[in-house]
Design a binder for these strands. Structure first.
Lengths: 225, 225
DNA sequence: TCAAAAGTGTTGGGGATACACCCATGT
DNA sequence: ACATGGGTGTATCCCCAACACTTTTGA
């Protein structure tokens, strides 16, 4: 009976938050990280929290997610998907229903953005496996988002959303290894992804210390998850 | 920054709806059906809609879903899970964010409830493959719920939630066939489910026209989906 | 004894893993 | 030439679909 005005719900406010994943360089292999914002108000002032904001009256849910993402990182995501809606009565002092999205950012864009020094204050990147205590129920939310990412990486090809436009199979494999936290066989990995429609070979090669490696593009169209 | 009072969202209301599935008897095989309610107010007065209502200020999301389910069917579900949150700006004349759940009902309880004549007015069951035009974006929602059910039935054992407490493997297989819309091999089906922890054999047998069939119970604990 | 459903056994194909091996390049 | 990562070939295992077959009951 939605939209029948019997019991309005003025006391309930709707927030949209986004768990943003990206790969950040590391001496060893790249690490999967996410940006958090430090709260400047009560409740939980001073604690780290997942970026988010109030849903605008004339704004779609996905739009709101993209907006908070842009406010946090000044970037647009290569992947954005609704995660879950959290609405426990006691998850905040006042009643807040949080529609949570999760997103992937291309690592090259993040690096570029950081070096331009346009990075907003109060934003810091954390290793997903080493998060501080977060405000509200945000630890639980982050865990769930991570679980979903790892899950989805298993059966779809979205991990390419963490890489630049063109990449070698080894680079992509290392992304999978970072996300999944385990080693993958290079030859089997190759066959798996060459078979899938989601990857398009280009005529370019990455030249390095050794035999040049073919570059691939990600074909979002064919990725029917 | 949830819960920071900068831009309140009083114009936005939160509704909770539930797509309820159950098997209903049919001359041929049982059919997968869902209950709809006829709207008694504008907008879309007179059209069929997915059962739902406003989120109460002191009520969790899942609680609200169970409540609207009970108001519609006077029953408690054997399975209840959040589906998705719909919040397009134009999905309703006023701004409504709908948190949608989906549920399974044991067919025997539905039958019992119906015959007690406690069935609410304005509620009618429809075949999932033959739904009328629904209010708002509810056709889209119902389709998505059906897709999710069919998907989930493929890799988990929840379909048992549509059956009474004890059932034969053939009965369970027929549920899968109704939901998936295709025939399954009896012997392979048996092996598959006997192997899974989710099914517990009992010492009872269903006696009928032919060789008695062992009854099984569903073990929700072991169903780690 | 026959029909029909319950239940068991056997086989073969496809995908995933493990791993041996060749190829191309910079030094 | 050789070290190193790029890339190919192949054997094996396991899951699952297909289907032949046996068992148990009611009529």
């Amino acid at each position: 009976m939605s939209d029948t005005s019997e019991r309005p719900t003025d006391e309930i406010r709707v927030a949209v938050s986004t768990v943003i994943f990206s790969l950040r360089p590391d001496p060893e292999s790249d690490r999967l990280m996410l940006p958090l914002v430090r709260r400047t108000r009560e409740p939980h002032r001073g604690m780290w929290a997942i970026p988010g904001g109030w849903l605008g009256a004339a704004e779609g849910l996905g739009d709101a997610a993209a907006r908070t993402l842009a406010e946090t990182t000044a970037l647009t995501p290569s992947y954005l998907e609704q995660l879950y809606t959290f609405g426990d009565v006691d998850r905040s002092p006042t009643r807040v229903v949080s529609v949570v999205y999760w997103a992937l950012l291309r690592s090259d864009l993040v690096d570029a953005q950081r070096s331009v020094a346009g990075a907003p204050e109060n934003v810091e990147w954390f290793d997903v496996d080493d998060l501080p205590p977060l405000a509200f129920d945000h630890n639980r939310i982050a865990e769930y988002a991570l679980w979903r990412l790892r899950n989805k990486v298993g059966y779809s090809r979205i991990a390419a959303g963490l890489l630049p436009d063109r990449f070698t199979l080894t680079e992509l494999r290392e992304v999978y290894e970072s996300v999944l936290g385990r080693r993958l066989d290079p030859s089997n990995f190759r066959r798996l992804l060459e078979g899938s429609e989601a990857l398009v070979p280009t005529e370019s090669f990455r030249t390095g210390k050794h035999r040049p490696a073919r570059l691939f593009r990600y074909n979002a169209e064919a990725d029917a998850s």
